[in-house]
Simulated assay, not measured.
Amino acid sequence: MDHGEDRGERDQDHLVDLIRRRWKQDQFSPEIIRRVEGILDINTVEHRVPGAESARGFLPITSLASHSCASNSIKDKTNPKFVITRARTKILKGEEITFHYTGGLKGRFMRRKALKAGWFFWCSCSRCSSPSEQGSEINTLICSSCSGLVRPVSPLDQESIYSCEGCKDELSAKEAENREQELTKQLESFYRKKGFLRSSSWMGWRRAWS
């Protein structure tokens, strides 16, 4: 799969010019170059190891795995020479193998936008479809009026309002997204400093760190 119909022509045309004109490899048609580049971009997996160079490659299992925000496998990238795909839950015979294309701790807005930008689809997995993110509450806010839980009314709609289950106060999608970005910065800072998250209005974090 190369998602050629979704990809911008400007970068692809630059690559075609680079290969055919500058590298003098005009035996390859523009269509073939765009097709191959699309397959490489969409299906290869980045491999990062601290202290080593970053690389991309096709992996026999992982490159064929579909995405799910509640994936049943994970990439183990601790060895600079290998990428190991491990099951994170019991996978039955015939069951689809999935892994998370983006960071699992990202909120709904950031996670779905990253998937749309990088892989050209709006995720509608079981986690994205659930207002509570399958009970993880990773994207649930705490109401400033009554301390009730504030969740998206229509999780698969990026413009959905957020509503408090207690007092029924509402937040616009933009307000909820701004809150998510602020809290994401706090969480990333926490991981960098290996300290303690002092306060948060994100229910999932409050549950995890209280």
Results as ranks from 00 to 15, higher is better:
residue 113 K to Q: 12
residue 33 I to R: 00
residue 72 N to F: 04
residue 59 L to V: 00
residue 89 T to H: 08
residue 84 I to K: 13
residue 43 N to C: 13
residue 151 R to I: 06
residue 18 L to H: 15
residue 89 T to V: 09
residue 96 E to M: 07
residue 59 L to W: 01
residue 115 L to C: 05
residue 11 D to Y: 14
residue 93 K to G: 12
residue 27 Q to T: 03
residue 178 N to C: 15
residue 21 R to Y: 03
residue 2 D to A: 14
residue 58 F to I: 10
residue 207 R to E: 13
residue 181 Q to C: 09
residue 5 E to A: 10
residue 78 T to E: 14
residue 20 R to E: 08
residue 165 E to V: 12
residue 150 V to C: 04
residue 61 I to V: 11
residue 44 T to A: 02
residue 60 P to N: 01
residue 91 I to T: 09
residue 12 Q to G: 12
residue 114 A to I: 04
residue 172 S to T: 04
residue 36 V to R: 10
residue 10 R to G: 06
residue 20 R to H: 07
residue 81 K to R: 15
residue 32 I to G: 00
residue 136 S to N: 08
residue 69 C to L: 01
residue 44 T to N: 02
residue 125 C to A: 01
residue 64 L to F: 02
residue 161 I to P: 04
residue 200 S to A: 04
residue 64 L to T: 00
residue 153 V to P: 09
residue 110 M to F: 07
residue 151 R to H: 03
residue 132 S to H: 13
residue 87 A to C: 10
residue 124 S to L: 01
residue 175 E to I: 05
residue 123 C to I: 11
residue 101 Y to F: 10
residue 119 W to Q: 05
residue 171 L to S: 00
residue 93 K to V: 14
residue 33 I to D: 00
residue 31 E to I: 08
residue 43 N to F: 05
residue 167 C to F: 00
residue 29 S to I: 04
residue 92 L to D: 10
residue 152 P to R: 11
residue 203 M to A: 14
residue 32 I to S: 12
residue 126 S to N: 11
residue 99 F to H: 02
residue 56 R to A: 06
residue 140 T to I: 07
residue 120 F to T: 04
residue 43 N to S: 13
residue 208 A to F: 05
residue 171 L to T: 04
residue 123 C to F: 08
residue 17 D to Y: 13
residue 204 G to R: 01
residue 111 R to C: 10
residue 163 S to A: 13
residue 122 W to R: 12
residue 199 S to W: 07
residue 22 R to C: 13
residue 130 S to H: 08
residue 188 E to P: 03
residue 2 D to I: 06
residue 194 K to A: 08
residue 40 L to W: 10
residue 62 T to D: 11
residue 137 E to V: 11
residue 145 S to E: 13
residue 116 K to R: 13
residue 165 E to C: 13
residue 8 G to F: 11
residue 95 E to D: 06
residue 10 R to M: 05
residue 208 A to K: 12
residue 165 E to P: 09
residue 180 E to K: 06
residue 8 G to V: 04
residue 79 N to Y: 01
residue 175 E to M: 03
residue 18 L to Q: 11
residue 158 Q to D: 13
residue 108 R to P: 04
residue 185 K to M: 11
residue 194 K to F: 01
residue 14 H to V: 15
residue 196 F to E: 08
residue 189 S to H: 06
residue 134 Q to T: 09
residue 143 C to D: 07
residue 19 I to M: 02
residue 120 F to D: 06
residue 158 Q to N: 13
residue 41 D to T: 12
residue 140 T to S: 14
residue 97 I to E: 06
residue 190 F to H: 10
residue 161 I to T: 07
residue 186 Q to E: 08
residue 143 C to W: 09
residue 12 Q to T: 14
residue 172 S to V: 01
residue 35 R to I: 14
residue 129 S to T: 02
residue 119 W to V: 00
residue 73 S to L: 01
residue 24 K to N: 00
residue 116 K to C: 09
residue 107 G to Q: 03
residue 137 E to M: 15
residue 57 G to P: 00
residue 104 G to P: 00
residue 90 K to R: 15
residue 154 S to H: 11
residue 58 F to R: 07
residue 87 A to E: 05
residue 138 I to L: 07
residue 190 F to K: 08
residue 140 T to P: 06
residue 82 F to E: 14
residue 47 H to R: 02
residue 78 T to K: 14
residue 62 T to A: 15
